[in-house]
């Protein structure tokens, strides 16, 4: 399943994605976070040490997290700020901590937290606005390591067809 998490207020991009993905018969789900309450990660570590796998912040992120677990691909559609994704996009990634345990191991030459679940998604980014694309690509490669999965690429919001070509 392809999970599309739209953290922007604009549903135009997801409208285009829906249209193109329906044509290709891709199994997908869209989550619009604009109307949701998603707080930033506080780094309390409760999801590792007190209530393993469960975030202590009781807000709408839990419904997002449940969808991330078991998805084959996760695409975050985000606005940009200061050359990178804005805080709303970043919060989606920061809050993934419960999908890992605090145990550590080496994988592909990197020390990583042991994933809590056997099926986690590959990661792609669609961004709206100005950003340092080369850096975003580097960052997405690194972020995907947390899932022990691969990066699917970074696309501008006017490159939807190229992004859809990577969705399956």
């Amino acid at each position: 399943m392809v999970l599309l998490i739209n953290t922007t207020d604009d549903t135009g991009v997801t409208g285009q994605l829906r249209e193109l993905l329906e044509k290709t018969g891709t199994n997908f789900e869209i989550v619009q976070t604009a109307g949701m309450k998603i707080n930033p990660c506080m780094g309390c570590n409760h999801c590792w040490l007190r209530t393993p796998g469960i975030c202590s912040i009781r807000d709408d992120y839990e419904t997002v997290l449940k969808r991330i677990i078991g998805a084959g691909q996760m695409w975050v559609i985000t606005d940009t700020a200061l050359g990178f994704m804005d805080h709303k996009g970043k919060n989606i990634f920061d809050r993934i901590l419960p999908i890992t345990t605090m145990y550590l191991h080496f994988r592909n030459g990197q020390m990583r937290h042991v994933p809590r679940y056997p099926v986690l998604p590959d990661v792609g980014i669609i961004f709206r606005g100005e950003a340092d694309r080369a850096y975003l690509e580097r960052w997405t490669e690194r972020a995907a390591l947390n899932f022990e999965r691969k990066a699917l690429g970074v696309f501008r919001s006017d490159e939807i067809r190229e992004a859809v070509a990577c969705m399956r």
Binding site: P40, C41, M42, G43, A81, L82, F84, D86, H87, K88, K90, N91, F93, D94, I96, W139, R142, A143, N146
Partner: peptide, 13 residues
């Protein structure tokens, strides 16, 4: 935080 600055700090910046 996930290879970069925490979301809350980004919101402030």
């Amino acid at each position: 935080y996930v290879e970069n600055i925490p979301g809350l700090l980004m919101e402030f910046l």
